[in-house]
Amino acid sequence: MLPSFNYYQPASLQEALTLLASLPRPKKLLAGGTDLVPALRRGELYPANVVSISGLSEMKEIKMERGLILIGALAAFSDLVCPPCFEGAHRLVAEAAGQIGGPQIRNQGTIGGNIVNASPAGDMLPPLVALGARVRLCREAGERAVFLSDFLGDAGGACIAPEEILVEVSFPALPVNAAGSFVKLGRRNSLAISRISAATVIIYDSYGRIEEARLALGSVGPKPVRVPSAEALLKGQKPAPDLLEEVVASVGEAVGVLLGSRSSASYKKAAVRGVARQVLQKADPRFMNSGEING
């Protein structure tokens, strides 16, 4: 038995927003429940009111519109694995979603829940940060849109009011000459929390040189971090194995500085080099030595 609370199942987003505005705190929103239900059970949360939005099908849609890819906050991870809009350069979204938890968790857990719960190890966050995603938040009185990187707090958590609902996450579709990938290092392949994750987006100019590179790391701080030193090394260059080694070294240094004297620092500083190497090679095979196979 879980703690006592009242439960509401609004039929529309508007009804949910009205309810959230009127119900007294503490109140919690229920989407997939894969984080909320265990937290209730462990006694970490004791809301008086739980508002379930899991049935709001208007928030499950995934679509491309005017150069933007829009993902409804209630899209389950398994809904993100197959759509054609997550092929090619955008595949980092599908790659991250496809490695979360196990199949059962992926059927239940939602992208919005992953964002709002803002775990340092939240696997959807580095790809979305690398893609320059924004989140749209609604409340009864209006709405706002913010960059995901600003929505995630520097000390952890997400900047969301109890009356707000994250309804959608979106990012600009990448140009044709772009690549992207995601790599996760966990203790095992399935049902493992990320020890380190990395997402990259690379945009090329018409000569095949890197016009812009973005590299976002997860699980090395309270929220995903970009690695400007590595991105600067890549800019203007043609992908090649020598360049990769330079980039990888700078990622290792950057993570060393970020983690300081934390007990995991020496492990992660070394391990992140492998993760960075893999994610860049997966995005662009020109980073590989001839004969090298990316595992």
């Binding site: 879980l2 239900v37 739980v50 379930s52 239940q108």
Partner: peptide, 9 residues
């Protein structure tokens, strides 16, 4: 779809 019944209210 397979889901974990222990995580569903």
């Amino acid at each position: 779809r397979p889901v974990n019944a222990c995580l569903v209210l």
